[in-house]
């Protein structure tokens, strides 16, 4: 189906972008197909798996369900935006250190959601992490090492309060 296009402007990982999008396009397609940002993954396309998780104005959402037009005037962060000048983000590093990544396909979404949980709850328990990650499916890891990694991030934050 054809649909009209409209111009939107928003902040993507700290940078202003402006582009024309079909009004029915979803944010995931915009990121991957229009902007070439392929870190955010497409798996189910219907909100069940979390592979497409991004942040919009600080909150995590499934980008496969979000209309791209709704990004207008807002702030998006994708997995590409987590990287720091020093290298991997502490959540990414913890996943590496704990062997929490296997094929890796779910990981951009898993890490975006884990980062959101840790940021919003400095005392996040393992059980709370498990509940918070309910919308992120992983076919490889069995989740145990993912939860180990998240717990480690929470602990590390408690000690230095910076990372």
């Amino acid at each position: 189906m054809m649909s009209v296009e409209t111009e939107i402007r928003f902040k993507l990982n700290g940078r202003e972008v402006a582009l024309m999008v079909p009004v029915t396009m979803n944010t995931l397609s915009m990121l991957r197909d229009k902007l070439g940002m392929t870190g955010t993954k497409y798996a189910c396309g219907e909100g069940e798996c979390g592979a497409c998780t991004i942040r919009i104005d600080g909150k995590t959402v499934n980008s496969c369900l979000m209309y791209a037009v709704d990004c207008d005037g807002r702030e998006l962060v994708t997995i590409e935006g987590l990287r720091t000048p020093e290298g991997l983000h502490p959540v990414q590093q913890a996943f590496v250190d704990h062997g929490a990544v296997q094929c890796g396909f779910c990981m951009p979404g898993m890490i975006m959601q884990a980062d959101y949980l840790v940021e919003n709850n400095p005392n996040l328990t393992r059980e709370e992490a498990q509940r918070g990650l309910e919308g992120n499916l992983c076919r490889c890891t069995g989740y145990t090492k993912v939860l180990d990694a998240v717990e480690a991030v929470v602990e590390a934050k408690k000690c230095c309060g910076r990372c």
Binding site: V23, T24, N26, E46, G47, C64, L65, Y67, V69, D70
Partner: peptide
């Protein structure tokens, strides 16, 4: 009417629901 899109997106994608002349974002 479009709000969060969590019903509208899958329903239009699957063809269960058709769009009309205007798409109105109420957020």
């Amino acid at each position: 009417v479009l709000c969060g899109g969590t019903d509208l997106a899958p329903q239009t994608e699957s063809g269960a629901r058709q769009y009309t002349a205007k798409l109105l974002n109420i957020r």
